Amino acid sequence: MTKKERAAYVDIELEKRYPNPPIPLDHFDAYSLLVAVLLSAQCTDERVNKVTPSLWALAKTPQEMSLQEPETIREIIRPCGLSPRKSVAIRDLSRILIEKHDGVVPESFEELEALPGVGHKTASVVMSQMFGHPSFPVDTHIHRLAQRWGLTSGKNVTQTELDLKKLFPIERWNHLHLQIIYYGREFCTARGCDGTVCPICRALYPDRKRAKVTKKA
C-alpha cells in the first residue's frame, strides 16, 4: 500500500468502528473543557473525569476559580500529576480570562496558546471539540499510532500533525482525532500492540514480522 492508500483504509475503518465518537473528557462549557484538557497532560482522561467533579464543586467559573489559592486547587487535582504547575496555571488562566476576555474562553489559537499551561495541543482540542474549527490535536498516543500505520516519519508531534493534515480531508480532522484515540485505547495500546497485533496494523502491514520501533514525541 502507498501512504495515501493506508490513510484511506484507516479513514474508512475508523469511521465504521466509531461513527459518532463522544468527547472523552467530561465538561459543561468551554471553560470546563479547557481546564480538563490542561489536567489531562500526562494523565488519563478517566482519572481527570474522577477529579473534576470535586474541582467544579470548589469553583466552576473563571470568576470563582480566580479567587482560589493554588494550594487549594492543588489538593484536589493532585491525582492528575504535575499538580504544583497545573494548579497555578488554572488559577492564573482564570484571572487572565477575566482581565482580557470578559471571563469567556477565546475562540482563537493565538489567544488560547497565550494562556498559562495551554499549549498547541490543548488549544487544538478546545478549538475542534468545543468550537468546531478544523483541527487535528496530536498527543503521544496518536503520534505512536501514526508511525505504526506508516502515516508519518514520526520525528515529533508537530511533524505528525502536519503529515496527518495532508493525508486526510479537512472535514474529517475533528472526528478522526477522536476516532484514533478510541481505537488506540481499545486495540493499539502501548503494551497491547507493537505494530503487529491490532487489526489495522495487521491489515496495513500483513508481512511485518518485527515490532515497529516508534520515535518518542
Score class of each variant (00 low, 15 high):
57 A>D: 08
58 L>I: 02
59 A>F: 02
60 K>H: 09
61 T>Q: 11
63 Q>D: 15
64 E>G: 02
65 M>E: 02
65 M>Y: 00
65 M>H: 01
66 S>Q: 01
66 S>G: 02
66 S>W: 00
67 L>F: 08
68 Q>Y: 10
69 E>K: 05
69 E>A: 07
70 P>F: 04
71 E>F: 03
72 T>H: 12
72 T>M: 15
73 I>T: 03
73 I>A: 02
76 I>N: 00
77 I>A: 04
77 I>R: 01
78 R>T: 03
79 P>V: 13
81 G>F: 11
81 G>T: 15
81 G>E: 12
81 G>V: 14
82 L>F: 11
83 S>H: 07
84 P>I: 14
85 R>T: 09
87 S>N: 04
89 A>F: 02
90 I>Q: 03
91 R>Q: 09
91 R>M: 07
93 L>M: 04
93 L>W: 00
94 S>K: 02
94 S>E: 05
95 R>N: 04
95 R>V: 00
97 L>M: 08
97 L>C: 06
98 I>S: 04
100 K>S: 13
102 D>R: 12
109 F>N: 08
109 F>E: 12
111 E>S: 07
112 L>S: 06
113 E>H: 09
114 A>T: 10
115 L>E: 07
115 L>V: 07
115 L>H: 03
115 L>Q: 12
116 P>K: 10
116 P>R: 11
118 V>L: 05
119 G>E: 03
119 G>K: 06
120 H>T: 12
121 K>D: 04
121 K>F: 11
121 K>V: 14
121 K>M: 10
123 A>Y: 03
123 A>T: 05
123 A>Q: 05
126 V>L: 09
127 M>A: 09
128 S>N: 12
128 S>L: 14
128 S>V: 05
129 Q>L: 15
129 Q>W: 13
129 Q>A: 09
130 M>F: 13
131 F>D: 11
134 P>T: 13
136 F>G: 05
136 F>Y: 06
136 F>I: 11
137 P>T: 11
137 P>I: 09
139 D>S: 10
139 D>H: 13
140 T>M: 11
140 T>P: 08
141 H>I: 11
143 H>W: 05
147 Q>S: 07
147 Q>G: 09
149 W>Y: 12
149 W>Q: 03
149 W>D: 01
149 W>R: 03
151 L>W: 02
151 L>P: 01
152 T>V: 02
152 T>Q: 00
153 S>I: 15
153 S>F: 14
155 K>I: 10
155 K>A: 06
156 N>K: 14
157 V>M: 11
157 V>W: 04
158 T>R: 15
158 T>M: 13
158 T>E: 14
159 Q>D: 14
160 T>G: 02
161 E>G: 04
163 D>A: 07
163 D>V: 03
164 L>R: 00
165 K>G: 06
165 K>S: 06
166 K>R: 15
167 L>I: 02
167 L>G: 01
168 F>Q: 08
169 P>V: 08
173 W>Q: 15
173 W>P: 11
175 H>D: 12
175 H>Q: 10
176 L>P: 01
178 L>N: 08
178 L>I: 15
179 Q>S: 15
179 Q>F: 13
180 I>M: 14
180 I>W: 01
182 Y>M: 11
182 Y>P: 09
182 Y>G: 10
